[in-house]
């Protein structure tokens, strides 16, 4: 099952993780590695434990059993959280009336460890670069609530990029975004993965929405039902069974 090449540096190791919200396990015995420069999609139906797993990796939830190691350290020991850029699911997180400009949101990422409000010139250039990378520099002074869902998602990616992360973790990044914008979005992630060497981990409940740029797939349904290359996944019985179960193919370009 684990057919992914492991020559690259191991960034995250998920070992025998189990989690329960008190009514039975939502995750059981989940183990797989995430290597440097992976472009990994964690997929599975609603309630399969994807978001729970992401939160465990980010240290927001503590597993009932097992452990996660990030760059060789347990989540408790790991301190360099700036190297992990988290892009939350926009719709469930943001108050659209919140008075905050695009630039301020991006600055949150790099300034949260600083003591004084004033930005340095170096930080300003990091923010400008991050905005350029995701193509929204022209909106930098706009209030975030006035942007479209796709643009807001880019702002959150820029916030993560401003810290020069090694890994980007995205929770359902294309929910509520039209197909064309999704295409641009995946092209941008591909560029960040190829040109900047950033490891991409994204989760989606739409099993079929596996874009051409995704290289690895981890399929969850409480347990890990598949982990390996995208191509093999598309030929696997698991994929066929999921499609037959009604997880329609939305955008699969090959």
């Amino acid at each position: 099952m684990d057919s992914v090449a492991t020559e690259q540096e191991l960034l995250i190791e998920i070992r025998k993780v189990a989690y329960s919200y008190g009514y039975g396990d939502v995750l059981k015995d989940v183990s797989f590695p995430i290597n440097q420069e992976d472009f990994l999609a964690i997929i599975g139906p609603n309630g399969s434990g994807k978001t729970t797993l992401l939160k465990i990796i980010l240290g927001l939830l503590k597993p009932r059993l097992g452990e996660v190691k990030i760059m060789g350290k347990t989540v408790e020991e790991f301190a360099d959280w700036k190297t992990i850029g988290y892009v939350p699911q926009k719709a469930t997180h943001i108050d659209s009336l919140f008075p905050v400009s695009v630039k301020e949101v991006v600055a949150m990422g790099i300034q949260s460890s600083r003591r004084f409000p004033r930005r340095t010139r170096e930080e300003d250039s990091c923010i400008s670069r991050a905005l350029q990378q995701v193509g929204i520099e022209e909106y930098k002074n706009r209030r975030i609530g006035n942007l479209s869902a796709g643009q807001q998602q880019r702002v959150f990616i820029a916030r993560a990029l401003a810290n020069h992360p090694k890994i980007l973790m995205l929770d359902e990044p294309t929910t509520g975004v039209d197909v064309k914008t999704q295409e641009h979005f995946y092209d941008m992630l591909h560029r960040l993965n190829r040109e900047e060497g950033i490891t991409i981990v994204l989760i989606t409940h739409e099993v079929g929405i596996i874009n051409k740029h995704v290289a690895q797939v981890a399929c969850l349904n409480q347990t890990l039902v598949y982990h390996g290359s995208h191509d093999e996944f598309c030929r696997s019985d698991e994929f066929k069974r999921m499609l037959a179960d009604g997880h329609h193919l939305v955008s699969h370009h090959h």
Binding site: L58, G59, L60, A79, W81, K82, I84, Y86, P88, H93, I94, F98, V100, V105, M108, G109, S112, S113, F156, R159
Partner: peptide, 12 residues
């Protein structure tokens, strides 16, 4: 205040 979960994930 803006995004509690992301703030927590960033180590705050």
């Amino acid at each position: 205040t803006f995004d509690r979960e992301s703030a927590k994930a960033s180590g705050i």
